[in-house]
Computed example of a mutant assay.
Amino acid sequence: MPVRDFHEDDWPAVRAIVEAVVAAGDTFPYDPRWSPAALRDVWVERPPGRTTVAVVGNRVLGTAKMRPNRPGPGRHVATASFMVARNARGRGVGRALAEEALDWARDQGYAAMQFNAVVEGNEAAERLYRRLGFTVVGTVPAAFDHPTRGRVGLHVMHRFL
């Protein structure tokens, strides 16, 4: 699955993916009332971060963003987030985006990658991240208000690079 850097003309397709994932309310702690401009500001990273898209031909199937997890003394740890179009799930899009993010982080000299808010019970994400070598280092209890399961935990997942 080809993954490349985000270009401005990708925004309409990326926006559709981001809006659909956020509207579902079950995997990302983003407010579905945010404007398209606010969503773009949150999703499209500025340097030293990076935003990517997974594509087949000219069709965007998923998107990722990556950056330092924290500034200053925490800048040696990267973080990343991934969104896949509903009709493209289960086809390796998320894996391709995550592998590209890990490669990017290694190439940039990061020592580790950390995910700060993996929704407890997001089985597809948890399974993928574990297969890629991440472990849950902690869970913030009842930190995410899931639309059907009520308040569930947010996992912090980590792996060294």
Rank of each mutant, 00 (worst) to 15 (best):
M1Y: 05
P2I: 00
P2G: 05
R4S: 13
D5T: 11
E8Q: 06
E8H: 06
D9L: 02
D9N: 04
W11Q: 12
P12I: 10
P12A: 10
P12D: 09
A13P: 01
A16L: 14
I17Y: 04
I17K: 03
V18K: 04
E19L: 06
A20Y: 13
A20P: 12
V21M: 14
V21Y: 06
A23H: 10
A23F: 12
A24T: 15
G25F: 15
F28N: 07
P29Y: 13
Y30L: 15
Y30D: 06
Y30I: 12
D31V: 11
R33N: 14
R33I: 09
W34D: 15
W34M: 08
P36F: 08
P36H: 12
A38L: 11
A38V: 05
L39H: 14
L39K: 08
R40G: 09
R40N: 05
D41S: 13
W43F: 04
V44C: 02
V44A: 00
V44N: 14
R46A: 10
P47E: 15
A54Q: 01
V56Q: 12
R59V: 14
V60Q: 00
V60R: 07
L61K: 03
L61H: 07
L61N: 02
G62A: 05
T63P: 06
T63N: 00
M66D: 14
M66R: 15
N69I: 14
R70F: 14
R70K: 15
P71M: 11
P73Q: 15
R75E: 05
R75F: 13
H76T: 13
H76Y: 10
T79E: 12
A80D: 12
A80V: 07
S81I: 09
V84L: 04
N87C: 13
A88D: 10
G90W: 00
R91A: 01
R95P: 02
A96Y: 01
A98M: 00
E100S: 03
L102A: 10
L102K: 11
D103W: 02
W104H: 00
Q108T: 13
G109W: 14
A112T: 06
N116W: 01
N116V: 08
A117R: 10
A117C: 12
V118H: 01
V119K: 05
N122M: 04
N122L: 04
A125E: 03
R127I: 06
R127K: 12
R127L: 06
L128V: 02
L128D: 00
Y129P: 07
R130Q: 01
G133Q: 07
F134V: 11
T135P: 08
T139E: 04
T139A: 08
V140N: 07
P141N: 08
A143T: 06
A143Y: 11
A143Q: 10
A143V: 01
H146K: 02
V152L: 01
G153C: 10
L154K: 08
V156I: 08
M157Y: 10
M157W: 02
R159P: 02
R159A: 04
R159D: 13
F160T: 02
